[in-house]
């Protein structure tokens, strides 16, 4: 049901995982780690595909050792929650620092509801569309 509404995101998520990391010539082990990190993101978040902007942004936001722990599935519950919040909001919010946004419209929280709600600040449809019953009401 939800998947049928994800075409824009599927397209965005279709690029190869190696392209997620800055710098083209990644060592093979880095490439594997990147793939594993992306897989953790998908599994934890409950999405088959995730926009590049989000996975790459999260990968940049977390320190190397956290990224490794997440990729190797040895992360603490708190670290996993922190990754999930980053992916769902498009913003990395470390406990002891200021948050940094790297994505907005792509954030998974909006993807989770996009069949019925537009991302705020983007036009929702023809004027008055909101009087219609939402598709999943």
């Amino acid at each position: 049901m939800i998947e049928t509404h994800l075409s824009r995101r599927l397209f965005l998520g279709g690029a190869s995982a190696a392209a997620l990391m800055p710098g083209a010539a990644l060592a093979q082990s880095d490439g594997r780690k990147t793939l594993a990190f992306a897989a953790t993101c998908r599994e934890l978040a409950g999405f088959d595909t995730i926009p590049n902007a989000l996975v790459a942004g999260a990968a940049r936001a977390f320190p190397d050792e956290d990224r490794t722990a997440l990729a190797e599935k040895t992360a603490s519950p708190d670290l996993s929650k922190s990754l999930l919040k980053t992916l769902y909001t498009g913003m990395y919010s470390p406990e002891d620092g200021d948050p940094t946004r790297f994505a907005y419209a792509e954030a998974l929280m909006y993807a989770a509801v996009e069949d019925s709600l537009n991302v705020p600040s983007y036009c929702g449809g023809v004027p008055g569309y909101w009087a219609e019953k939402p598709v999943s009401a």
Binding site: E43, A45, K85
Partner: peptide, 29 residues
Amino acid sequence: NPVEGIAKAAIDEGLTGTELREAVRHRTA
């Protein structure tokens, strides 16, 4: 749109995967 607070709360509860995604939809609606 109340989704941000709902998503954060669901994550804090420890939900993950499809369960998380579905809870976010269900509660936001």
